[in-house]
Amino acid sequence: MSAPLLQMRNLRVTFPGPRGPVQVVKGVSFDLGRERLGIVGESGSGKSMTGRSILRLLKPPAKVETDLLRFDGMDLDQLSEKQMRAVRGARISMVMQDPKFSLNPVMTIGTQIAEALRVHEKLPRREIEARVITMLEQVRIDDPRRVVKLYPHEVSGGMGQRVMIAMMLIPQPDILIADEPTSALDVSVQAQVLDLIEAMIAKNGMGLILISHDLELVARYCDRVLVMHRGRVVEELAAGRLHEARHPYTKGLLAAVPQMDERRAILPVLDRAAEYET
């Protein structure tokens, strides 16, 4: 494994609630090299908050604290907003869930992709255009010259997500955070998009954080898996060794996955009565 590119120690995210502050992430720590890390967990487990905290995207009233958040020798939690902007996109990027909402509806696809490049590099217009076209070809979009002139509502979900990936990878970042990148897509295109992410990551030698609620999917595309529950990492596993899980929550999750060759009358559900407090 390569030297840690990103180190996070004891991340805590707190929101004010009607009955005092609510801590939604309660001390998450991990290292990331140029590898593929999966974060799984159910809704509200804090996995998305963890992803967004790396890019410092959470705005007040959310309170984000870390003992250490170091990326490539920089302490991200110490950077000014301006310095942080130079990291966003250019060094660490993020693909979000639904291209229907994550692309600006009134800007053409070409403009949006070009912007991702333009905010970081002063380049002549022709070169930017050429790189946008090349990037779209890389994410396997046919006829990119036509697509750059389209608006997001004129393309399908799968294509929108490939546009999103193109936009996020065009400044050649070191880390890509993919936050449920396929949850809003048809099953038939989910694998396409993930294969594309996997290929691009491998090609550019990047680090990937794949956030998902789908344990199987994360195991298939990642080297390492963090299982999060109620704001904590409850288990860390090599992707090939899911069956060795020891934590009751992970075991519960795995047990709830139906198998092709079995006949169970009732699928087991997570035992909520035994919520493992702390």
Partner: peptide
């Protein structure tokens, strides 16, 4: 509060452009 505003921030767009371009155009 829309997602594409977050997208713009993720890209490293300045807060000024996020507000006057990405959020204002629509």
């Amino acid at each position: 509060s829309q997602e594409y505003v977050i997208t713009a921030r993720v890209k490293g767009v300045s807060e000024r452009a996020v507000i006057w371009k990405h959020a204002f155009y629509p």
